[in-house]
């Protein structure tokens, strides 16, 4: 059996990208040629999603709702507007809904259709949020799935599963941890994890002083 040599580095030509990369280039060339896409706008969007938006935005929203009862009421009443107050607004005009955890209710978010996600407050979804396994199982057996994230919820806590759509995106407002009375909003926001705003985690406990 003859074995092909490893990549020959005396190759005169440029390394060929993968088939998907070539197909993506073909789409872009076609759309730019037709004037449907501005490459600068694409770069700007990718840069925004990669660098400017992420769970720190959502953490600010949650920290504000923990420390300002009026803001909390506005957030639960009209989350789109309350989130926009902090400068975060929908990328495609989607509607935001905030669902608050309590002693009795724990909320968790999924998108069973694809991967609809509250981009302005959480950025891009993690791979597991996009996986068919999570999308199917969290609806059927939320308690078991949440437990796999390390969060054992007692049986007397009701779990509500919210299915995002292209039009409606949910943000979970986790419970404020005990012992955080002295923290300001910045300190509170540091306790708010991405997973706590999806519902597969809780806010972190403050470090014991």
């Amino acid at each position: 059996m003859t074995k092909k040599p490893p990549h020959d580095h005396s190759h005169p030509h440029t390394l060929l990208p993968s088939d998907p990369a070539l197909r993506a280039k073909a789409i872009e060339t076609l759309l730019v040629g037709k004037g449907l896409v501005d490459p600068a706008a694409v770069d700007a969007l990718v840069d925004t999603f990669s660098n400017d938006i992420g769970p720190r935005n959502g953490a600010q929203v949650v920290a504000r709702s923990w420390s300002d009862p009026d803001y909390r009421a506005r957030l639960l009443g009209d989350a789109t507007a309350a989130i926009a107050e902090l400068g975060f607004s929908g990328m495609q005009g989607e509607h935001m809904v905030a669902v608050e955890n309590s002693e009795r209710v724990h909320n968790v978010v999924v998108c069973t259709l694809c991967s609809c996600y509250p981009w302005p407050v959480l950025g891009l979804p993690p791979v597991w949020f996009k996986s068919p396994e999570y999308r199917a199982r969290v609806v059927r057996e939320p308690r078991a799935v949440i437990a796999e994230f390390g969060l054992e919820l007692s049986d007397d806590i009701e779990i509500r599963v919210w299915d995002s759509t292209a039009e409606i995106r949910y943000l979970v407002v986790p419970q404020r941890p005990a012992g955080t009375e002295a923290l300001d909003e910045v300190g509170l926001a540091d306790l708010v994890t991405r997973d706590s705003m999806i519902g597969t985690g809780l806010a972190m406990q403050p470090e014991a002083s």
């Binding site: 993968s18 993506a24 896409v37 969007l45 199982r137 799935v145 994230f149 390390g150 985690g201």
Partner: peptide, 27 residues
């Protein structure tokens, strides 16, 4: 489900970002 705490790169391959960005730009 895998432990979800690791920070993830937003896009693993450049073409992931390219098609994501194009789709958003078109919309």
């Amino acid at each position: 489900m895998p432990p979800p705490t690791e920070p993830e790169r937003p896009f693993v391959e450049p073409w992931h970002a390219q098609i994501f960005g194009m789709t958003h730009a078109l919309a």
